[in-house]
Amino acid sequence: MAKPLFVVGKHRSGTTWLGNLLLDHPSIAGLHHERHRGIHESAFFSHVDGRYGDLDVFENYVEFAAVMARSDYFRLAGASFEDLMELYPANYADVFRVIMDRVAEQRDARYWIEKSPMHTGCVRKISDYYTNAQFIGIWRDPVDVAFSWIKRQDERHASQFGRLLALARVTIDKYVVDAHMLDVRSSQPEQLYVVRYEDLVDDKRKVLNGIYGFLDLSQVEVRSGYEANTSYTDSQTSGSDEGANKTKRFKRSSHEEKFIQCLYNWGLPLLSARALIHLKRSLRQNHKSSLPSWFFKLLNESLDEDGSEKSQETDGSALD
């Protein structure tokens, strides 16, 4: 049985790039697609786990299976509604593991990999579900993360106050995510290995060899086969590594950079964990209880055996 491997870290920290690089190792299997810029995130333990209630209740399991069978992640895994129904009765974690074990078995891989930034806060829960799971976390400078995020959200033309509020929101979220990740590393160093984005850019081979040593894997030369998921380039070249691109930054002021640095390094450390979580929730905007729209990007398409897409007349509305 393959071992679970999770890539975690704050959004815009290089999780996709790192996941794509690890996915290229012959002993690691996972789900990927061009529409998702390579490795696809499931957000299963942050958005799905517990969502449909007790899965021992047949009606709950049917609803769970119907939605998951239409999601991109399970479609790419080749898991149909009928396949999922054959697993009943089963809990959330068991279903996910069975599906991912099948993915690893098809490639004869030692690990199956999943990458979801939202899982950073679920590391302890996931490690309780899968006692042999291992995690690779990635940390990036908070200033670069904040501006990468704000450019991605197209907040460049907001008012000055609106920009500062957006920068504060993402910085607070990053601080909470980083604090949780580092706390888990200190208590479970055998399960969580953390790398720096900047180190990956400077010396990709050295960082990856460190990860391979942690995972007890052979050292191989890998390269992401998908275009960079970066906010700092005007154009992206297919097959290029994210860190290999010479980034062209959009305008950002020095006082905004200092604001982020002071908030992350001086202001937030003065608050308690409870206060940080409350502050993070109060600053979050447009929070929705529904599943993210990217769960169903491929809903109007089907995948040929060679992985190419073709149109299909299917209702694109989400089931829940």
Score class of each variant (00 low, 15 high):
residue 76 L to F: 01
residue 23 L to K: 10
residue 288 K to N: 12
residue 228 A to M: 13
residue 149 W to P: 04
residue 2 A to N: 05
residue 143 V to P: 03
residue 44 F to V: 08
residue 190 E to N: 05
residue 56 D to E: 06
residue 49 D to M: 06
residue 289 S to W: 14
residue 190 E to C: 09
residue 86 E to H: 09
residue 8 V to T: 10
residue 104 A to H: 03
residue 24 D to H: 00
residue 61 Y to N: 02
residue 294 W to D: 08
residue 208 L to K: 02
residue 164 L to V: 01
residue 60 N to E: 02
residue 173 D to C: 04
residue 232 Y to N: 13
residue 119 H to R: 11
residue 78 G to T: 10
residue 318 A to I: 07
residue 295 F to H: 05
residue 47 H to P: 03
residue 300 N to M: 09
residue 51 R to M: 13
residue 128 D to S: 13
residue 319 L to N: 01
residue 258 K to I: 06
residue 300 N to S: 13
residue 49 D to R: 11
residue 55 L to Y: 05
residue 5 L to Y: 06
residue 177 V to E: 13
residue 53 G to R: 00
residue 288 K to M: 08
residue 311 S to A: 15
residue 24 D to Q: 14
residue 281 R to I: 00
residue 225 G to S: 11
residue 285 Q to E: 08
residue 231 S to H: 00
residue 308 S to L: 02
residue 117 P to R: 05
residue 107 R to Q: 15
residue 163 R to W: 00
residue 186 S to A: 10
residue 310 K to S: 13
residue 33 H to V: 01
residue 111 Y to M: 04
residue 248 K to I: 05
residue 122 C to A: 10
residue 248 K to F: 03
residue 83 D to M: 04
residue 230 T to C: 10
residue 29 A to E: 06
residue 37 R to W: 13
residue 154 D to G: 00
residue 161 F to D: 10
residue 209 N to K: 12
residue 250 F to I: 09
residue 156 R to H: 05
residue 52 Y to D: 05
residue 189 P to A: 04
residue 9 G to R: 10
residue 105 E to N: 00
residue 227 E to D: 12
residue 160 Q to T: 07
residue 87 L to G: 09
residue 247 T to P: 13
residue 161 F to K: 15
residue 105 E to G: 02
residue 84 L to G: 09
residue 288 K to F: 11
residue 217 L to H: 12
residue 90 A to K: 08
residue 179 A to T: 11
residue 217 L to D: 00
residue 34 E to V: 07
residue 303 L to K: 02
residue 51 R to Q: 02
residue 7 V to T: 11
residue 140 R to V: 12
residue 19 G to Q: 04
residue 160 Q to F: 05
residue 33 H to M: 03
residue 217 L to S: 08
residue 58 F to K: 14
residue 283 L to Y: 06
residue 283 L to C: 07
residue 300 N to I: 06
residue 275 A to H: 01
residue 101 D to L: 12
residue 126 I to A: 01
residue 190 E to S: 09
residue 123 V to M: 15
residue 84 L to I: 08
residue 255 H to E: 09
residue 17 W to G: 11
residue 55 L to S: 07
residue 36 H to I: 03
residue 131 T to I: 01
residue 238 S to Y: 15
residue 247 T to S: 14
residue 7 V to C: 00
residue 298 L to C: 09
residue 172 I to A: 06
residue 20 N to R: 02
residue 144 D to P: 08
residue 141 D to N: 15
residue 135 F to D: 12
residue 258 K to C: 04
residue 208 L to E: 03
residue 268 L to R: 00
residue 40 H to K: 04
residue 313 E to R: 15
residue 173 D to H: 03
residue 58 F to M: 07
residue 129 Y to G: 01
residue 52 Y to K: 04
residue 180 H to V: 00
residue 299 L to D: 10
residue 25 H to G: 14
residue 231 S to Y: 02
residue 147 F to D: 13
residue 76 L to W: 05
residue 65 A to P: 10
residue 104 A to W: 12
residue 235 S to R: 09
residue 222 V to T: 14
residue 288 K to L: 11
residue 97 R to T: 15
residue 262 C to I: 07
residue 253 S to T: 14
residue 219 Q to N: 08
residue 72 D to M: 03
residue 198 E to V: 05
residue 36 H to M: 02
residue 112 W to S: 01
residue 231 S to L: 03
residue 33 H to S: 02
residue 262 C to R: 15
residue 80 S to K: 09
residue 228 A to I: 07
residue 182 L to H: 10
residue 295 F to Y: 14
